[in-house]
Each structure stands twice: as structure tokens, then as C-alpha cells.
Design a protein around this nucleic acid. Structure first.
Length: 160
DNA sequence: TCCGTATTGAACT
DNA sequence: AGTTCAATACGGA
């Protein structure tokens, strides 16, 4: 089940399973339109979750920590989930390095693997992979494009 | 098993 | 200040 999240910055696409939000994509430039979601039956749960998701996305875009998050149904390996879980502990307005995340999950040498897990994150924004910088406060990379990463950090008042 | 990473830090020019 | 290089863990083919 895919539903659009309309914001002033574009149309994000949220994908839900019975268990919760499974995916949240940045606005796609051109390809993959909203697609015929109509006709599908939207369960009460998903409707409720989607309202929470919309509010959370808008808050994050405005640089504020979302008050509530929908339940997440993240598909990934145990390692990736550990990383994503660690990312969610980063408070808004703060950043960490890939090395710090690696240490936080007890694998100080899994630095590059952390980068890989960030890139595999199906739910950017809600899982704040944009708060992870490379050593020396360099930007590193970002799945949705570095422009987004810069913008989100600036929105949270992070300077580097 | 080999390859590519959203890395890192040191050793060079 | 820029470049090269090895070490490194994980995931996909």
C-alpha cells in the first residue's frame, strides 16, 4: 500500500504493510508517479499511521523533532536494524560520525558497514541518517541527494 | 568468493 | 591542501 505525502518540498511516497510503515521515499524526479492507488482499500490502521507519518515528515522538514512516529516495519538484517536503532537515538540538532555509530553498536571497526546500512535505510527522515557525517564533519553521502542532507541539517540548526 | 561501499587515519607529495 | 593506500565489516551477486 503506497500513499503520497504532500509537502511544500514535493511528494514523498510512503509504503505500508500490515505491521507499519515500511518505506518512505524522497520525491521522485519525474519517474514513478503516484500510480493508481485508488481502488485499494485502506485499512483503519494505515489511515491512522499515515496521518502520523505526514505530521512527522512536515515537522522534520521544518527542523523540529516529530512528536510521534508511526510503527515501523523495517526490512533488513540484524546488523542493519542495530544501526538504524542507533541512528534514532541521535537527538535533533546533533550529529555523529560513522565511526561513532560503529562504536555505539559495539563494532568499532564496522565503520564502512555502517555507511552501507545507512544507505540501505528504507525510511530516511524518520530514521535520521542525515545526522551522520563522515569524520571531520564532512558531509559524506546521502541516498536522497546531498542537497537534502545539507538542507535538513541547516534546518535543525547544525553548523559545520 | 569477489566486489563495491554514504569510512578512516596515516603517510606521502 | 590534495592524493594514495591499506585495513575493515557487511551485503549482494
Amino acid at each position: 500500500m503506497r500513499l503520497p505525502v504532500i509537502t511544500t518540498d514535493g511528494k514523498f511516497i510512503a509504503r505500508y504493510t500490515d505491521a507499519g510503515l515500511a518505506e518512505l521515499n524522497f520525491p521522485t524526479t519525474g519517474r514513478a508517479s503516484t500510480r493508481a492507488v485508488k481502488g485499494e482499500i485502506i485499512s483503519a490502521n494505515i489511515r491512522r499511521w499515515h496521518r502520523v507519518t505526514e505530521a512527522a515528515v512536515k515537522n522534520i522538514l521544518a527542523g523540529r523533532a516529530p512528536k510521534h512516529l508511526p510503527p515501523l516495519d523495517l526490512a533488513g538484517t540484524a546488523f542493519q536494524k542495530q544501526v538504524w536503532n542507533a541512528l534514532r537515538k541521535i537527538p535533533a540538532g546533533q550529529t555523529k560520525s560513522y565511526g561513532e555509530i560503529a562504536r555505539a553498536i559495539g563494532r568499532p571497526r564496522a565503520i564502512r558497514a555502517v555507511g552501507g546500512a545507512c544507505g540501505a535505510n528504507p525510511v530516511p527522515l524518520l530514521v535520521p541518517c542525515h545526522r551522520v557525517l563522515a569524520a571531520g564533519k564532512k558531509l559524506g553521502g546521502f541516498s536522497g541527494g546531498l542537497d537534502w542532507k545539507r538542507r535538513l541539517l541547516v534546518g535543525e540548526g547544525v553548523g559545520w
